[in-house]
């Protein structure tokens, strides 16, 4: 099963080809250009480099959120277009699950957090004893303080000595987390800190095997938050 995975939910633009559990090629761009400019050229390039055309692909995977509203829509719109034109099924993967997929076989509590602006983070809490992250709480949006208290509480409850923080939400509030967690915080090398399209592809293999495909006519990103205008109208949560 050959999967083309696409992620543009954070400042990173990623695309990867994954064959079962083997990564064939991956592109990871964490640079200034907009996703609108980079995404399709990247997809085009990685397929060419592997002498593939879209007809060789079995399944498309896309990170569906949470993340930047516009970024999510760029990736999802592109994948919808490709899916319809090439008649390929789509698997949607959580951006937070994708991040947690960077870690495997750990006793630590794995927390993924994305900068949600307005002094909040999108976050999820995971156990990753094997190769597949198991979400125990989230996805949700909250302040870094609330996030941290949940993490500490969960770790205590699960008897986990160490806590791993992944995602750009960590970078944003690193000073605060470092001071609060001290040696409870298990540092992770930089290449595992941000979402990887390859990880989304590997997670998508599992979902595709279970037949968890999306209806592209109704698929939409997981925003978690309402738009500002809806909040002002006094609507509740999504």
């Amino acid at each position: 099963m050959l999967i083309l995975a696409v992620d543009s939910s954070t400042p990173v633009a990623g695309a990867a080809l994954v064959d079962e559990d083997r990564v064939i090629i991956e592109s990871f761009i964490n640079y200034k250009k907009t996703h609108s400019e980079t995404l399709l050229p990247t997809i085009n390039r990685i397929l060419r480099e592997c002498d593939c055309s879209i007809t060789d692909i079995d399944v498309l995977a896309v990170t569906a959120g949470p993340g930047s509203f516009t970024g999510l829509r760029i990736g999802m719109a592109a994948v919808k277009g490709i899916s319809m034109a090439a008649d390929k099924p789509v698997v949607a993967v959580s951006t937070l699950d994708t991040l947690a997929g960077n870690i495997a076989g750990s006793d630590a509590l794995v927390c993924t957090l994305l900068d949600a602006r307005k002094n909040e983070v999108y976050c999820g809490f995971y156990e990753v004893s094997g190769t597949c992250p198991e979400r125990i709480k989230g996805p949700m949006v909250c302040t870094p303080e609330t996030f941290l208290s949940i993490a500490v509480e969960l770790a205590a409850y699960k008897h986990q000595e160490k806590i791993i923080l992944l995602g750009d939400g960590y970078y944003r509030y690193s000073e605060y987390f470092d001071i609060e967690l001290k040696d409870k915080l298990l540092p992770v090398p930089g290449h595992l800190m941000l979402p990887r399209a390859a990880a989304a592809g590997v997670l998508a293999v599992h979902k595709a095997r279970q037949g968890e495909f999306e209806d592209v006519y109704h698929l939409r990103p997981l925003y978690i938050r309402l738009s500002e205008a809806e909040y002002r109208l006094g609507k509740g949560a999504v």
């Binding site: 609108s36 399709l40 516009t70 829509r73 760029i74 719109a77 277009g81 319809m84 034109a85």
Partner: peptide
């Protein structure tokens, strides 16, 4: 950006 990204994916595929 929604229309543009969709159009790119559709045209490319």
């Amino acid at each position: 950006l929604v229309g543009l990204s969709f159009a790119k994916g559709f045209a490319w595929a």
